[in-house]
Amino acid sequence: MHSDQELVEACCRGDRAAAEALVRRYQSVVYTLALRMLGDTQEAEDAAQTVFLNALRSLHLFRGGSSLKTWLYRITVNECSARTKLRKRFPRPASDDDPVASLPDQNRLASDLANDKEQETRNAVAALPESYRLAVILRYFEDLSYEETARALGISVDTVKVRLFRARAMLKTLLAEREDLRS
């Protein structure tokens, strides 16, 4: 098993096998984050492919100041944020064949599992504004430290703490509102 640094050096020399090993090592991490941010399997796959292509082309710039995983998170966040912005500007027409529609609908699931607090919390996380949702995803779902979350988002550790604090406050409000609606 080669270390990340060895794989990076081999990739910089154009080693195909090393590049494939590197992609295989982190493909689930990148794809899962892309899917959590975009909610669409096809778009997540496209985004993950772009992330790896950008990463492989820029590997010579990777200085090892952070871990390769955090560096890939950063590229993934940037790529998915750009796609989200584009999607907001040019929304796709609604269609029966839309793969987004075929994904489990958070709200439908919530009504089915009305008593499941965890499901409700998941739905509330999905309803957070993007900057807060991203901080929550990276800190809790990807289990990154404050420092890693800050590097992945390109912000300071204090800003991460503030965003998480506000995100938790919003979650409490959202969960309380849903509780009120149920009762």
Binding site: R16, A19, E20, V23, R24, Q27, S28, V29, Y31, T32, L35, A44, E45, A48, Q49, F52, L53, L56, R57, K117, E118, T121, R122, V125, V136, R139, Y140, F141, E142, D143, R168, L171, K172, L175
Partner: peptide, 30 residues
């Protein structure tokens, strides 16, 4: 709330792209 978020995160599924994903990416890179 903190415990619930940690629990949800720990139990969250990890997704995998299609089996030929890595090969496709590397072919495109080359």
């Amino acid at each position: 709330l903190e415990s619930r978020l940690v629990r949800i995160g720990a139990n969250a599924p990890v997704f995998a792209p299609p089996a030929d994903f890595a090969a496709k990416v590397v072919a495109e890179w080359q």
